[in-house]
């Protein structure tokens, strides 16, 4: 194991326990997702790994070495893309990427080759020699990724790497993340973007209130909802949310969008219900699809803010909410069979 975290705990002076007994491990060559809503303890965990914070309890080993005792080693072994957008005013992307590569100990020749490959791979060549002040947020984010990847350590930590990045370059970015793993680095990917993580990670852990509540591969986690479908309803503007049909397992509302989880046996009934709502003019459109990792996440964490990319718990008041998640399963199976 390249990264081993065991029983990690950290509480801030004023706040709650940010990390509360976290254990996880990441292998070399693996892309490991760390998921959780805002304030779940992800960044606190990262800052302990790279030695900016001192854990209250627990062990962190990188390549078998105790980095709580030797944070200097952690910084040599890890490269990081921080969550905050790095201002590189005064520097061009070329200078920023190459200087960081050399500060990380690579030779000028290696750094240049690596920089060229990354700039090509991320398609940011047109901004290569522009001053950092004139770059858009998305380009800055990509440059910041390149700074972490140009001379990667054994462990590469990426904190929300795709924020602000356009859809096309997001795909390029994910390909580069994958490439880091394929070249042997362990990648710790911190995100609350569940949909993207599902496609990109080998394994993942979901953090909630400083604890790991579940860990596994996306496929393993999705087994929990293998028999479920997600019914997405978009309400007509101003329409009241409908009372959930008896077969609905649970719902989460985010603004005009309502996600209802239904058992696959109730597929026909679900379509009928949604269609009736649409005819009644309460629902603008609907779709029925297999449940995703996002549904697992919502079921486990039980918060609508998970659906949002960074804007908190807007519209968290749902129809039923996850706590009742499994309550109606029997009943709904019955409906499905009818």
């Amino acid at each position: 194991m390249l990264l081993e975290i065991d029983g990690l705990a950290k509480a801030y002076r004023k706040g709650a326990r940010a990390n509360d007994g976290i254990s996880l491990s990441v292998e070399a060559g693996e892309v490991y997702g760390l998921l959780g809503h805002n304030g779940a303890g992800k960044t606190t965990l990262v800052n302990q790994v790279i030695g900016l914070l001192r854990p209250d309890a627990g062990r962190i080993l990188i390549g078998g070495r105790d980095v709580v005792a030797d944070p200097g080693y952690a910084r040599r072994a890890c490269s990081i893309q921080p969550q905050a957008t790095l201002p590189i005013d005064g520097l061009t992307p070329r200078q920023a990427i190459e200087l960081v590569g050399r500060i990380r100990g690579s030779s000028a020749v290696d750094v240049r080759a690596s920089r060229a490959r990354l700039v090509d791979g991320l398609d940011i060549g047109e901004w290569l020699d522009q001053d950092g002040r004139r770059l858009s947020g998305g380009v800055k984010r990509l440059v910041s990724f390149a700074m972490a990847a140009v001379a990667p350590g054994g462990l590469v930590i990426l904190d929300e790497p795709t924020n602000d990045v356009d859809p096309v370059r997001r795909r390029l970015l994910w390909a580069q993340v994958r490439a880091l793993g394929d070249e042997g680095a362990a990648v710790l990917l911190v995100t609350h973007n569940v949909v993207e993580a599902e496609r990109s990670v080998d394994r993942l852990a979901i953090l909630d209130h400083g604890r790991v509540i579940v860990e596994g591969s996306p496929a393993q986690l999705k087994e929990r909802v293998a028999d479920d479908l997600r019914l997405e309803l978009v309400l007509e503007p101003g329409a009241e949310p409908p009372t959930p049909a008896p077969f609905v397992l649970h719902t989460v509302a985010t603004g005009q969008r309502i996600l209802a989880t239904v058992p696959s046996t109730a597929a026909a009934a679900a379509v009928g219900w949604a269609d009736a709502l649409k005819r009644a003019g309460r629902v603008e459109e609907f779709s029925l699809a297999p449940a995703t990792l996002e549904d697992v996440y919502v079921e486990l964490v039980g918060r609508a803010d998970a659906l949002q990319n960074g804007n908190g718990g807007q519209g968290a008041a749902g129809l039923g909410g996850a706590p009742n998640a499994r309550r109606n399963r029997e009943e709904s199976a019955h409906v499905g069979a009818a």
């Binding site: 900016l52 200097g72 910084r75 990081i80 921080p82 969550q83 905050a84 201002p87 500060i103």
Partner: peptide, 12 residues
Amino acid sequence: EGTLDYMRSLPI
């Protein structure tokens, strides 16, 4: 803006 923490995360 987080620059200080970033610089502190580099092996220097």
